[in-house]
Nucleic acid binder design. Structure first.
Length: 556
RNA sequence: GUCCCAGUAGCUCAGUAGGAUAGAGCAACGGUCUUCUAAACCGUGGGUCGGAGGUUCGAAUCCUCUCUGGGACACCA
């Protein structure tokens, strides 16, 4: 438990005691004590709305109840400086700053571990994201999914969950056949022959480049191969090549996956057939019009879905079911899929399929990432792999930079539409908040380089109560918030809280920096205490930036 | 037609397990470097939280209806 949590828990316990002592409620019927941090400083360090909650049970006006609670409150125990009753019946607690200054040695000692908590209780979560078909380069939408998925995993792990990031490679379906045929066509064209890309094939530039490489490497020798073998060759070559590019893009974007899961491997290990059998056995399927259907409508889907088409082949849905079943079988308690908005229709049917297999659909969590609209020269740029005009993830990295892109994607709630103005991001990148946060870090580094005289091995021995200025208290409170920000962010799958927290912390730092001098030879004890504070802020900023995949530069 | 997301300051968006006077950045205006990085700080102005009802001590937040914008609704993946 973190220091701030300990303080809050103790305070809650004391409130409970006071309520019982005052005879306002039995210990058993006591509502949960809600202790919040007021926005307004004049409202104290912590506040509770207990009196309002008890108004009904005790049948008294809230302010009267608040008075009785305060009268029975044991102020000796904790480090409470002052208690006030305010507004409709809030009880505001003003604490001694000791618990705040205690944070500094704790943070310095924890180092890169600061911010961690066990609020996730080791729950195993598989987070699948990106999972783009290997049929072209990753584009802007994938970049958002990648940033969100990667950050989500890091936040979950920091908060005590066990999250595994995974990429599902769709290397088994029709799309891949289309890819092979498209490569073949481009290959023939590169050799100067007549060939046309099929209607649902891929027209991207990267396929042309791929074909050119084939010509360089193999000349026209591939034409002589029998068609089946040739297509198989193009397919494997295409998948390998494109997956290499995808992996490179993702790792350059600082996105990490524990596992690259192949769809083909599901077939090879009989997982698809097994999933199908399981559904049949449970009586969740039926035949109609020559196809095999799954009764997804029984579990809340709009209509039933086809598993096996009348031509005997599987729909994409069937291996996907096998894949999700496998995720549970590998021991994960919960599944999170980070999906593009175009997969919206997929949510109900996959949850239904999992329910049909006997899993709790509440453990299948689909996070829909809304569209990214790109604006360039004031015009909306349509994204499509097929047209070859898509803005790629690579271009994004080169144009706006990885730090800015990662921060930008993390800072907005992923279920809102995102307008990404490329011109603005490129031409006025200094206005990007990421630089504000990084600058705070760089400033501290720069100060600490000169601070050797004031540095102390054991911050606990310093006179930290000298840190009592308004700006210092602000900073300390922010530092103490970090673990609960991470925990809450994880619990709500709301990653945007972290960038927003970093911005606030940076703001407090800048404000402090401009108001006070840290390194002052005229006041050594205070300087030492402030150096320790700066170290704690630097650690916290760094840990937060790590979570969202943004670099912490020592110099800017 | 059904479903999902959004609508909060001029612009881009935070804030939604109900809390006190709704926030930030940008833009506008006015200040601050002989002092640890001015990519910063300090200040001013700017709001029917799309609209209407409801729930209650209390609603941007929860419920119902409604308007506007975006997206999804294949024996494609």
């Amino acid at each position: 438990m973190t220091i701030v949590e300990q303080v809050k828990e103790q305070l809650k316990e004391e409130i409970r005691e006071a309520v019982v002592k005052a005879g306002l409620a039995e210990a058993g019927q006591l509502p949960d004590v809600i202790l919040e941090t007021p926005k307004e400083k004049t409202h104290g360090d912590f506040a509770t709305n207990m009196a309002m909650q008890l108004a009904r049970i005790a049948r008294k006006p809230p302010r009267k109840i608040a008075e009785e609670i305060v009268d029975h409150f044991d102020t000796e125990k904790g480090s409470i400086r002052k208690i006030e009753i305010a507004g409709p019946g809030f009880i505001n607690f003003f604490l001694d700053n000791r618990y705040l200054t205690d944070l500094i040695p704790a943070i310095i000692q924890a180092g890169s571990a600061y911010g961690a908590s066990d609020s996730g209780a080791g729950k195993k979560i598989l987070v699948e994201f990106v999972s783009a078909n290997p049929t072209g380069s990753l584009h802007l939408g994938h970049a958002r999914g990648a940033a969100v998925g990667d950050t989500l995993c890091k936040i979950l792990n920091k908060a005590g969950y066990k999250a595994s990031p995974e990429y599902y490679i769709n290397d088994g379906g029709n799309q891949i056949m289309n890819l092979a045929v498209s490569i073949e066509a481009r290959y023939l064209q590169a050799l100067g022959r007549e060939a046309e890309i099929p209607e649902n094939g891929y027209h991207g530039k990267d396929i042309i480049e791929l074909a050119n490489q084939l010509v360089e490497k193999y000349g026209d020798t591939l034409i002589e191969k029998p068609e089946k073998e040739r297509i198989r060759f193009f397919r494997r070559f295409g998948v390998d090549h494109l997956m290499r590019g995808i992996k490179k893009d993702l790792s350059d974007f600082r996105v990490h996956f524990d596992c690259w899961y192949s769809e083909r491997s599901l077939y090879e290990r009989g997982k698809v057939a097994a999933a199908l059998d399981a559904l049949k056995e449970k009586g969740e399927t039926y035949s109609k019009d020559g196809a095999l259907w799954l009764k997804t409508s029984k579990y809340g889907d709009d209509k039933d879905r086809v598993l096996v088409k009348s031509d005997g082949t599987y729909t994409y849905f069937t291996p996907d079911i096998a894949y999700h079943k496998d995720k549970f079988e590998r021991g994960h308690d919960e599944l999170i899929d980070v999906l593009g908005a175009d997969h919206h229709g997929y949510v109900a049917r996959m949850k239904a399929a999992m329910q049909a297999l006997g899993y709790d659909p509440a453990h299948v969590n689909m996070q829909i990432i809304q569209l990214v609209n790109l604006f360039k020269d004031g015009e909306k740029v349509k994204m499509s792999k097929r047209t070859g005009k898509a803005v790629t993830m690579r271009e994004l990295m080169e144009d706006v930079g990885i730090d800015a892109a990662r921060y930008f994607f993390a800072m907005r709630s992923s279920d809102s539409h995102l307008d990404f103005d490329l011109d603005l991001a490129i031409s006025r990148s200094n206005e990007n908040p990421v630089y504000y946060v990084q600058y705070a870090f760089a400033r501290i580094c720069s100060m600490l380089k000169r601070a050797e005289v004031f540095d102390h091995d054991d911050p606990a021995k310093l006179d930290l109560k000298l840190l009592s200025g308004e700006k210092e208290i602000d900073l300390l409170k922010k530092l103490g918030d970090f673990p609960s920000v991470v925990a809450e962010s994880a619990a709500n799958l709301a990653i945007q809280h972290v960038p927003s927290y970093l911005f606030d912390l940076a703001s407090s730092l800048h404000s402090f920096y401009n108001a006070e001098k840290v390194l002052d030879e005229g006041n050594v004890p205070l300087s030492k205490a402030r150096v320790a504070l700066m170290k704690a802020v630097r650690i916290t900023l760094k840990n937060g930036m790590d979570l969202i995949g943004v670099n912490a530069p020592e110099k800017m």
